[in-house]
Design a protein around this nucleic acid. Sequence first.
DNA 1: TTGAAAGCGATACCAT
DNA 2: ATGGTATCGCTTTCAA
Lengths: 341, 341
Amino acid sequence: MARRPTIVDVAREAGVSKGLVSLALNDRPGVNAGTRERIQQIATDIGWRPNPAARGLTNRRAYALGLVVRRDPRIIETDPFFAAFIAGLETVLSDRGQVLVLSLVADQDAEERAYRTLAADARVDGFIVTDLLADDPRIDLITTLGVQAVTLGQPDVPTSFPAVLRDYAPGIAELVRYLVDLGHVRIAHVSGTDTMLHGHERRQLFVHAVRGEGAEPLVVPTDFSPEQGAAATTELLDLPAHERPTAIVYGNDPMAIAGMSVAQQRGLRIPDDLSVTGLDGSQIGRLVHPALTTLDNDPAEWGRIVASTLLDLVDGTAPVDRTLTPAGLIVRGSTGAPPTR
Amino acid sequence: MARRPTIVDVAREAGVSKGLVSLALNDRPGVNAGTRERIQQIATDIGWRPNPAARGLTNRRAYALGLVVRRDPRIIETDPFFAAFIAGLETVLSDRGQVLVLSLVADQDAEERAYRTLAADARVDGFIVTDLLADDPRIDLITTLGVQAVTLGQPDVPTSFPAVLRDYAPGIAELVRYLVDLGHVRIAHVSGTDTMLHGHERRQLFVHAVRGEGAEPLVVPTDFSPEQGAAATTELLDLPAHERPTAIVYGNDPMAIAGMSVAQQRGLRIPDDLSVTGLDGSQIGRLVHPALTTLDNDPAEWGRIVASTLLDLVDGTAPVDRTLTPAGLIVRGSTGAPPTR
DNA sequence: TTGAAAGCGATACCAT
DNA sequence: ATGGTATCGCTTTCAA
């Protein structure tokens, strides 16, 4: 295995000092245009690539971004968001010579340790912060650690980090209007808890939209796990007939699928006896029967925007929030007119 | 933000040279026991941690493992294996001061590039190779790149890398026997293609087990995607009644769920009209209705064993294959006696 | 057993 | 515009 060419190999070939090679290769001023071109040519010819470890040692840069995800190990697989999100990150990262360091942890202790060691060991230049909580301690923590970050959604604490945002208001309004137009009056929402920011926001949007249509909102909070989604469904279906919702809007698709399953086990036909929707378009939603009405979502787009935002920030650009195309309604088989009684 | 203590800080405190500190901190011979202890004590006191970049520069070690996953971006999210698998990797990695570099790529070109650059840039010390193919080019590629690897399953090409293995024979035999005992005679398998090693193996085990029970195997190959799982189901259900299977064993759980959905859309009740099983126990399998009979699986266990195997190898231990507890049957609601006609 | 110094591959500063 | 050299944090000789 031939030794990889280093900057001194390039310098020797070009007959210049390695300092100059560094300047030329990094497109820094102070190099004669001809010399620069010659050096760059030689570098590509002999297949030189910068060594991130060496570079990082002087630069204090890791050329890597960190993603720490905390999930209950039992339910970790049911989140349909991350795979495509990471694939989206990847496209941008690889283009820019960076890598993704992923840490999947089970509890808050391990989570904090992960953030601390990744930063302290200079393994990442910035963090991608997903699943924001109310009063999220990670914003402060990361600030203390002296690395950059980008958040998915807007934190409710002061932050100097940019956020990538998406407006769910029109999508949720459209979804609710669609249900009301079908004839639904009692519409329930199986939401996340108020400690989870995006769950909180969606819940508020839901209540507002339902009220706006003159219908009756009903909310059952959960932790977003399919198990609690199932339990919430049981609770709703156990209500006396005149309070029982005819449509249930679930905070995410896995909960919707679990909820459908509960309803079907009780002998309810979907959508004839009960309409069901998700709020976060996923592929599995297309596989179940009936296929799930939901809002669209493009995790890969999230990934691309998040990665470029954070990399720009790490490269010294001033932080700027970015906004994705708003969510839109996808009608599939799980929704229909309420039963006429 | 206080500067992190370096090895010279430890040396100064201890009143020794930094070379000696390095020896002491790495548990190398040639240091007086008392001195060593004193140095180590001081190191922990002032919170010293080795800087992986600096260390790697001399060592040619990245203190990181690489996982490159190639998936069609559209179906990437449906694989229930990876999240828990990665969580399993993580527990071992963090214990040993290592990190996981994850690359999710869409096509074979990007895949090869990922392997090459991660190795060439010294970003990882070894690769975790999943989803083995027949004649898998990655074994040779990684060997050429001069880094280590561990495979999930046994490659069909010569390899010097250790493998982590799991015996599916007893589980598949148990599953088939269970179906036969219920009264099924025509049992179909929606399998992976022969280019995918674990699909190939399971298919062979299935055919062998069904024949062994005196029943009739029927196999439809797919690419393991839910889409093709659905198509295969249609194909099977379109067969004339006397050829049509009464039970379908799917190569993985997402295909089984898609298949159930197809059957249910055709008005078939599961398990009364058709029994359905997966082969790779997942959590989503518990959420659908009816819940999916399948073989158990512990992706986190895979992760832990794989990580420790590869780290040992990187640390210089001779490669040894490891074997997991064999698969066992999990009976849930999607299987029952065949319809009496 | 310990210290001193060289080197890993790059960047950055100070001369010229 | 270019060369020389110190430096990043750590490991690894080689002497003493």
